[in-house]
Every structure is written in structure tokens, then in C-alpha cells.
Design a binder for these strands. Structure first.
Length: 295
RNA sequence: GCGUCGGUGGUAGAGUGGUCAAUUACAACAGACUGUAAAUCUGUCGCCUCCGGGCUUCGUUGGUUCAAAUCCAACCCGGCGCA
């Protein structure tokens, strides 16, 4: 089995820097697993790695979609698996690095998503319905899926109905054993430290972020769309439009980013294969682990 | 100093004699996750609990009442108006 390294963990723990370091040390290439960094123009707000930070290490799956494009886990999965194959074929080590847990799992565990493409017309219609109505609809189409789905979650319900409309029912997802020999490295920091880093990152980016958002908006990306990207783009848009003050912006974003970090942690906690490290103090341990893995 | 409005759980803010441990929102904490995943959604949220219930709360103290966050009095604190 071909080897890959996964670097995951909550936001602002230094994943990108570690990826570059490992890539330089072990002849690797980085494949970003970040649902926002795939978009062109979302640079500052998504904390996209800069040219100089890359230190000449090739980075993939960054800037591969336009913000107005529809881009999904399935797209990411396909592209990432192709890219991993490509990197292996050049006898280099793929390093999958990012904070989007579902993207990572989709690639590593090869989740077989039902091949039903998004149907914008149907979605727009269904979005008008309340969750109970959507649930009733799904019950009629696929009672089995209805039993296990979250009946309050419109996003999930709509997707399930979309699938069932085409296939008749929602197929059970198969999660196969990983097709790769994977080393999972998770980065974690104590609560206070992570919160400080989050706050610092916000104030460091403050003027540049607003310029970026204005630029994106002028280039044809609606505030509604920007809002849907969440966090810096959501609250940054609110600020740029004058809906909230700068202090409200900082506080809101810090709070929401922390909540996001906790959601990421909750996701990754489930994966028992992850080796957790402190990015500042455990550098040697990480290097040793990687060395043993690659031997 | 007089008048007036107000002081409610981490915060904002309902409640204005019993159905109130107190609507709701936010925060906090835990969790879910089948093509939007930085999204979306759920649970807990005074203290204790053998989960039946028990105990202490709505500025403070005292009073009225079978019963008070809700009524009365005094006091303390804050806003506003007049001096």
C-alpha cells in the first residue's frame, strides 16, 4: 500500500507550516484539505498559505474553483485521489493537510457518495419547505433513510430527498478500509493558547481582510455568497456593509471561530488513528514518528 | 434635595399575586454529520438527586397575603427631569 501522511486538527494550530517542514524533510508534496482554500480569491480570510511560506514545496488543490462555482466533497475526493496517485507516480510523499474533517475522511476512507449531482432547481423549491414538511416527504420516498437522518436538519433532508428522487432511495454508504497506508498527525493546543492564537490572527488580518472582501464583491461575488462561506467572510461582509461595528466584528469572529474549532475537534476525536501532538513542544516526537512510518 | 423611571439567572431582555427555577436570544459545555461541512443540526444549561422529588434564587431588609420576581414601606444603587 502506498503511504500518505495526513495533518489535521483545529484551525490556527500551525498545520500548514508543519506540512511544509515534513515535505522538505521527506520529499513530499502538500495536498490541501480545506473547503475554502479551493476557491480563488479567498486568500486572507481562509489563511491560505503564501508563495514564500510554501518554500518551493508544491501545493495542490488550492485555487481550483471560482467562488461562484458549486464545489462539493465529491469533487474534492475525486481530485485529491487523482492527485495522490500523481504524486505517488513521481515517487514523492503526499501530505494531505487541512482542517476540513469530512474532506479528509472522504479521501482516506474512500466514502462512496451516491452519484447524484446537485439539482439547484429542486433545492430552491425544497428550501421553501419547513423541516417537518421535508421530513414527511423523505419518509414517503425512503422510510429507511428517514429513520436515521437528523429530522431537524434541512440541509441533510434536502440532499436525501434529492438523492431519493433520482435513485428511488438513499443508498447505504460504504466505508471501505483505507486504500492508503496512512499516518494521521493531529495538532492540538490548550484551550487558552488556541483562543489567543485565534484572536491574534483576526487582528493581524484586519485591514487586508476587508480589502479582500470588497475586491471579491466588486468582482461579482454577492454578499449573500460571501456570507455563506462563514467566519471571516460572513462577519467581514457584515462589517463592510456597515451592519456591525469593528468591535462587534472582532468579538463575533473570535467567538464563532472558537466554536468552529470545537466542532473540528469533535469531528477528529472520533478517529482513533490520529496521533495527537502539540505543534510547539512535540516537534521531535513528530519527526521520529514520521521517520518510523516511512522506514 | 425633590420628582420620576428602573435594578431579574454569565450577558441582553420577558414576566408584573398562584400554572415560575422563571418565555426568548446570545454565550458556555457536550454531541451529530451519506455531494453546501468555516456550512447545517441536536442536547444540557441555579444547586442536590435513590430522577419521585428536595433545596436556595429575581438590589437589601422588613411587611401584607393561604400564596410575592410580581403588592406595600424603608434603605442601597443607576438613568432621566427639576432644582
Amino acid at each position: 500500500m502506498q503511504k500518505i501522511i495526513v495533518i489535521c486538527g483545529p484551525t490556527a494550530t500551525g498545520k500548514s507550516a508543519l506540512a511544509v517542514e515534513l515535505a522538505l524533510a521527506y520529499n513530499g508534496e502538500v495536498i490541501s484539505a480545506d473547503s475554502r482554500q479551493v476557491y480563488t480569491g479567498l486568500d486572507i480570510g481562509s489563511a491560505k498559505i503564501t508563495e514564500s511560506e510554501m518554500k518551493s514545496v508544491p501545493h495542490h488543490l488550492i485555487d481550483i474553483a471560482h467562488p461562484n462555482d458549486y464545489f462539493s466533497v465529491a469533487d474534492f475526493q475525486r481530485l485529491a485521489q487523482e492527485k495522490i496517485k500523481d504524486v505517488h507516480s513521481r515517487r514523492k510523499l503526499p501530505i494531505l493537510c487541512g482542517g476540513t474533517g469530512m474532506y479528509i475522511d472522504a479521501v482516506v476512507y474512500d466514502m462512496k457518495f451516491p452519484e447524484v449531482t446537485a439539482n439547484p432547481k429542486l433545492r430552491a423549491e425544497l428550501e421553501q419547505l419547513s423541516a417537518p414538511k421535508l421530513y414527511k416527504k423523505l419518509q414517503e420516498l425512503d422510510p429507511d433513510r428517514a429513520l436515521e437522518i437528523d429530522e431537524h436538519n434541512p440541509v441533510r433532508l434536502i440532499r436525501a430527498i434529492e438523492i431519493a428522487t433520482v435513485l428511488g432511495s438513499v443508498p447505504k454508504i460504504e466505508i471501505s478500509d483505507s486504500q492508503y497506508d496512512t499516518l494521521f498527525i493531529g495538532l492540538e493546543l490548550p484551550k487558552e493558547e488556541l483562543q489567543e492564537r485565534i484572536e491574534k490572527r483576526i487582528s493581524d488580518r484586519i485591514p487586508a481582510l476587508f480589502d479582500e472582501i470588497k475586491k471579491l464583491h466588486i468582482s461579482g461575488i454577492s454578499f449573500e455568497k460571501l456570507h455563506s462561506f462563514g467566519l471571516e467572510y460572513r462577519f467581514g461582509s457584515d462589517y463592510v456593509q456597515g451592519l456591525i461595528s469593528i468591535d462587534e466584528f472582532k468579538e463575533l469572529l473570535a467567538t464563532k471561530t472558537w466554536q468552529f474549532a470545537k466542532r473540528q475537534i469533535t469531528w477528529f476525536k472520533r478517529n482513533q488513528n490520529i496521533h495527537w501532538f502539540n505543534p510547539i513542544h512535540d516537534k521531535q516526537k513528530i519527526l521520529k514518528l514520521v521517520q518510523d512510518f516511512l522506514r
